[in-house]
C-alpha cells in the first residue's frame, strides 16, 4: 500500500479529504458542545444549591 497514492486519491484528494475532514469536524463539534454544556450546568447547579443553602 502506497501512502502518497492513498493521499492523492487518484487526483481527487482535495475533495475526498475535505469531505472526510469536515465530517470529523462536525462529529467532534457535536460531541464537544454537550460536554462543555455539562460543565456549565454542573457549575451553575452547585452555585444554585449553595445560594439555596444560604437563604435557608
Amino acid at each position: 500500500m502506497n501512502w502518497s497514492e492513498f493521499i492523492r486519491m487518484g487526483g481527487y484528494g482535495f475533495y475526498v479529504w475535505s469531505s472526510y475532514g469536515l465530517a470529523l469536524l462536525v462529529l467532534l463539534l457535536n460531541l464537544y458542545l454537550p460536554l462543555r454544556r455539562r460543565k456549565t450546568v454542573r457549575r451553575l447547579l452547585h452555585e444554585f444549591l449553595r445560594l439555596k443553602e444560604q437563604t435557608r
Binding site: M1, F6, M9, G10, G11, Y12, Y15, V16, S19, Y20, A23
Partner: peptide, 23 residues
Amino acid sequence: LFVAPVDFQQGESYRIMFIHVPA
C-alpha cells in the same frame, strides 16, 4: 477507504459517498 474498489466511472471521488449518503 481501503477495501472498497475504485469506481470505474467516478474514480476515487466516489468515496465521498460514504459520508454524503449516510449524512
